[in-house]
């Protein structure tokens, strides 16, 4: 019988994993770039809310053990999606700093799941600053040597600051919802978005706008040069089967439909229709492939 709340959270099946599409645009149109794996605690408890769950985990200094558990659960939950779609998986910077064998564990999990590192993004999240040590730098180097791309979450907020950007040199700069939401009627927010897009480009990276929940903000971030987007407006986080399971794998290799009528009678039809509609409202020319 598990004694503590943490023990109970680490029981098999206690965590649920949902996936949220990250859509990106190039000259040929929009496509599913990756799915961010998001972990939720047991349904019906306050641990169902990720901000409570991970605040608790950080206060217990249990990032490493929980991140390992999450990675294993994500790999299980992602099985119906096939191995061709790219996954973005959150890892605490504290885990990389403190758990010297985490990069090897991570690679083993990816390999056992039949995935290749080139199709996995390590998304670094941080809420405190224990990452400044040598362990973090070594782990990051190991992750890159294994072939994983690095994303930095919440750029511009908290400890995801310029120092962290220099330490990580991420391939993906994820703009937090705090910066994105309301950018359509806030000159200063828009200026910050623009500066991060330029910064990402200077690093040879990609800016990803998170937390998009209205067409006006989507239009602004596209105007400012963002070409990778994520948010409820486009697709809510959902279990693998709701997103379309293995069908999604085929979609990822192709393009998003250019008209709503193209999406019919498929499990993933609902969210694809929603995403296509939002993208064509925000930027009619960009939505057409």
């Amino acid at each position: 019988m598990p004694e503590t709340l943490l023990d109970r959270l680490l029981l098999p099946g206690a965590f649920r994993v949902v996936f949220q599409p990250i859509l990106s645009y190039d000259q040929r149109g929009w496509q599913i770039h990756a799915l961010e794996a998001l972990v939720r605690g047991p349904r019906g408890t306050h641990m169902e809310y990720p901000e409570v769950l991970f605040e608790y985990v950080r206060r217990k200094s249990a990032e490493a053990v929980v991140d390992r558990h999450c990675v294993a659960e994500v790999m299980k939950a992602a099985r119906p999606l096939g191995s061709q779609i790219t996954l973005s998986i959150n890892v605490h910077a504290a885990t990389l700093e403190q758990d010297a064998t985490f990069p090897d564990f991570f690679r083993a999990q990816v390999q056992e799941a039949g995935r290749v590192p080139a199709r996995v993004i390590v998304e670094i999240v941080e809420h405190a600053a224990p990452w400044a040590g040598a362990g973090f730098a070594r782990a990051l180097e190991a992750m890159r040597a294994h072939g994983f791309a690095i994303a930095l979450d919440d750029v511009g907020l908290g400890h995801s600051n310029f120092r962290m950007i220099l330490e990580c040199r991420p391939e993906y700069f994820k703009l937090d919802a705090f910066l994105v939401r309301g950018s359509h009627n806030d000159y200063y927010r828009r200026a910050v978005v623009r500066s991060i897009v330029e910064l990402a480009a200077s690093f040879g990276g990609t800016a990803v706008a998170e937390g998009l929940d209205n067409v006006e903000d989507l239009r602004i971030v596209l105007d400012e040069g963002v070409r990778s987007v994520q948010g409820y407006l486009l697709a809510r986080p959902a279990p693998a089967d709701v997103l379309g399971g293995s069908e999604l794998m085929m979609r990822a290799a192709t393009r998003l439909p250019t008209a709503f009528d193209d999406v019919r009678f498929t499990p993933s039809g609902d969210w694809l229709r929603q995403a296509t509609q939002a993208l064509s409202q925000a930027a009619p020319l960009a939505a057409a492939s």
């Binding site: 306050h46 409570v52 608790y56 206060r59 217990k60």
Partner: peptide, 27 residues
């Protein structure tokens, strides 16, 4: 049930009132 759990809730949710047994010990 735990100090850290209470802190996580207080940090993310607004409460009008807390009723607490402070004999709990934390990490």
């Amino acid at each position: 049930e735990e100090l850290e759990e209470a802190e996580a809730l207080l940090a993310t949710t607004h409460y009008s009132l807390m009723i607490a047994d402070v004999r709990l010990t934390g990490l």
